[in-house]
């Protein structure tokens, strides 16, 4: 369990974190999400002490971080970077085995571990183990980046926007991969992203951050259904993702006729809820802040078709 108690981080010109309180239960997939400058990466990097707080205490398993030997603690924590940062001079298995090497594992044990991990993430060890990082695609490199963080079977794995530099297809595959790994390994994953869709997809618990404050903590479902404030709601809407898409995004693209008929839904419900309503009614009237609009199955299909086309294009 990782806890933040009244943690503050003051930079010369800016208060990056202000009275942060947070508990990450052991074994949880915990996602910190927020726009840039929200303090999510600062929070993450405090866990392995790359950044030290100005005030407050961070504890792991009820012991303050300062009580742990720094190197020993870091050797037991996995870390995945946004820019992957494989060591270009080391081959893949040496990259994966860098922490075990520091822990003094035998060469045989290190190589076995590296090969097993490669196999686990779908990279053939015979083919990849002795390649150099630049010979791999971005997606393949980040797979290696992930297994490198898992090499010592750490209790905690920290991931700092690990997929933001990847193409959408690789991103989706790697999201599936970390979900699977989390289920198999039962480690605590702390994952930072600015992408609400990614947060919803991965996080058991999500903390939405803004300007050094946590806006809301909860499951994806809770946050979706009951956003704590306008910022959280807005943050959802700005992130067009299949699961989080609401009727509002559909209306924003010009679907729906203005009508005076009584509304049966509000515009903040998901597209899924609209689809359900359209199974029993030919026209559904939704209420927006300004007026009421009538939506039909054709509107929904048009919206979904356009969305499919754009997501194909970006893939």
């Amino acid at each position: 369990m990782i806890t933040f108690e009244h943690v503050q981080k003051q930079y010369a010109d800016k208060l990056a974190l202000d009275d942060l309180n947070l508990t990450i239960p052991t074994g949880e997939f915990f996602v910190l999400v927020g726009p840039s400058g929200s303090g999510k990466t600062t929070t993450l990097k405090m866990i392995n002490r790359l950044i030290e707080p100005t005030a407050g205490i961070i504890k792991v398993d009820d012991r303050p971080l300062q009580d742990y030997d720094l190197r020993a603690m870091r050797l037991r924590m996995g870390y995945v970077l946004q820019n992957i940062a494989l060591f270009p001079n080391l081959n893949i298995q040496e990259n994966i085995a860098i922490q075990p090497e520091s822990l003094g594992w035998s060469r045989k044990r290190r190589l076995e571990r590296a090969r097993a991990l490669l196999a686990q993430v779908g990279l053939d060890p015979d083919q990849y183990a002795t390649k150099l990082p630049h010979e791999l695609s971005g997606g393949e490199q980040q797979r290696v980046g992930i297994v490198r963080a898992l090499a010592t079977k750490p209790n905690v794995v920290l991931m700092d926007e690990p997929f933001s530099a990847l193409d959408p297809l690789s991103r989706k595959q790697l999201q599936d991969l970390v979900l699977r790994l989390h289920q198999e390994l039962q480690m605590t994953f702390v994952f930072v992203t600015h992408d609400m869709g990614e947060a919803l997809r991965l996080g058991q618990t999500i903390a939405v951050m803004r300007n050094g404050h946590i806006q809301q903590i909860g499951t994806g479902e809770e946050i979706m259904r009951h956003p704590a404030n306008d910022f959280v709601r807005g943050f959802f809407e700005n992130q067009k993702t299949p699961r989080a898409a609401t009727v509002q995004s559909l209306l924003a693209q010009g679907y729906g006729e203005v009508t005076t008929a009584p509304a049966t839904l509000t515009a903040t419900v998901t597209v899924g809820a609209l689809a359900q309503a359209l199974q029993t009614q030919t026209t559904v009237v939704v209420a927006t802040a300004q007026d009421h609009r009538a939506l039909t199955t054709a509107d929904l299909l048009g919206y979904l078709a356009a969305k499919e086309a754009t997501s194909r294009a970006t893939d």
Binding site: M73, R74, L75, L81, A85, I98, E101, S102
Partner: peptide
């Protein structure tokens, strides 16, 4: 040296010597 690589070496808990021999000098 790429600060990301320095950060990675730091975060993985490599000793000063290990970092030098394994990462910094080769690069």
């Amino acid at each position: 040296i790429d600060p990301d690589l320095e950060e990675a070496a730091e975060a993985f808990g490599l000793s000063r010597r290990k970092k030098l021999v394994r990462v910094e000098l080769p690069l």
